[in-house]
Structure formats: C-alpha cells, structure tokens
C-alpha cells in the first residue's frame, strides 16, 4: 500500500446492507483518496470479490453475519491480510478501545460524519502498516535465528567428526558452499539432512 499523498487511491470495500449509511459514507469520502466499492448481502461471491478487487481496506458493520465470511478470508490469505474497520452503533469509548486491542483495526462509532471518518480511516491504514512492519520484522528475526541454528549444527558436527577447531569448521563449510555454488545456509541444511539420513540408515549398510 503506497501512501504518497492524495494522488494514490485507496480502494475500500464497504460491506453494508444499510443503504442510507452507504450513501452517507460515499458522500463523506467523495473527492478524497478513498475509492469506495460497495457490496451488500452475504454471498460466497464476497470472497471472489475481495480476490478480484484486492481492496486496501474493508469496512463492515460489526453486527453483519458476513463477518464470518471475512474470517475465512483473513485465515486463508494470512500472508496478505487486510485492515478491517468496523461500524458500530455503540458509542462507548472503552468498548471501542478494547475492540481495537482485540484485533480489529479501527472502529467507526455511530453515524458517518465526513469530518470524523477520514482521520479514522487514515489512522487505520497507518497503524495497520506499522503492525505489518512489526510482524515482518519478527518473521525475519525468526528466520535469521533459524539460519544461525542450522549453520551451528553443521559446524558442531564437523568439529566432532573431523576434530576441527570452530574457525576451521566454518572455513570448511564456506569452502564447500563456494565450490558447490550455494549459500552456507543451504549447504548446512543439506548436510544436516544427509547426516540424519546416514545415521538413521546406518544399520542397513
């Protein structure tokens, strides 16, 4: 999702049966960077629509039965999640705060006032971007740790088998990786798998 000023359009999928609210929201967001596509009743077509449309944001009434259709969407396409904003007629700020903590990106309480809704959507888009960035950071840290782990395993095995020092074992891994034209991580992975198979099948030989 790019956010370089008012020129980048943000596609919003609005799922709502309340025609009045749809019109109000369309008016409120007219001539803004939000481009509204509307869908009404709960049909399986909703999943296809989201696939086709790839909206940047989904807005739905918290009381809509279609929320469960979206639940399958967020679990199926975990790798490409969407920020979801909810309408609610509940004005209680505590409820809204705790809903946001419970995983909903943002709440729009009560009726759609053009002065209020834009900043809410802006905040939802921005906070979702931040959360996503944090998640990605966590994932890459996890991957980096796994990478270190497999290299350490291979190194340790070489040290024990060949009676090498740690720097020598690492140098050996690096040379083997370069000779076979692959990364140290990939080489270490294949070695670990190979040694595992060897020790499992050792009795048959």
């Amino acid at each position: 999702m790019q956010q370089d000023g008012a020129t980048t359009k943000i596609t919003v999928l609005l799922i709502d049966d309340n025609q009045q609210r749809v019109l109000a929201l369309q008016n409120a967001l007219d001539k803004s960077r939000y481009d509204i596509v509307h869908s009404s009743a709960p049909r399986i077509g909703l999943v296809k629509l989201v696939d086709k449309l790839q909206p940047d944001l989904v807005i739905i009434d918290v009381e809509s039965p279609s929320r469960d259709i979206l639940s399958s969407l967020s679990t199926v396409s975990r790798f490409n999640p969407k920020p979801v904003v909810m309408f609610s007629d509940n004005h209680d700020t505590n409820t809204i705060d705790s809903s946001v903590r419970a995983g909903v990106t943002a709440y729009v309480a009560g009726h759609t006032d053009s002065n209020k809704i834009r900043p809410i959507l802006d905040a939802a888009v921005a906070s979702f971007g931040q959360t996503q960035a944090l998640r990605e950071e966590l994932n890459s840290t996890k991957q980096a740790l796994e990478k270190q782990d497999v290299i350490s395993k291979a190194k340790l095995h070489l040290m024990q088998q060949q009676n090498l020092t740690e720097p020598d074992a690492y140098a050996m891994l690096r040379k083997m990786a370069m000779d076979s034209n692959q990364t140290i991580e990939n080489l270490a992975k294949s070695l670990v798998v190979f040694w595992k198979q060897q020790s499992a099948g050792g009795n048959n030989g």
Partner: peptide, 15 residues
C-alpha cells in the same frame, strides 16, 4: 449474535 467472529471479539474484550 449474528456471527462467530463478533461473538468471539466480544468475549475477548469482556463485553
């Protein structure tokens, strides 16, 4: 409640 998702969120938030 009209959906399992909203029922779950309400339970999570203590509503």
């Amino acid at each position: 409640q009209n959906s399992w998702s909203t029922l779950r969120d309400r339970l999570h938030m203590g509503d």
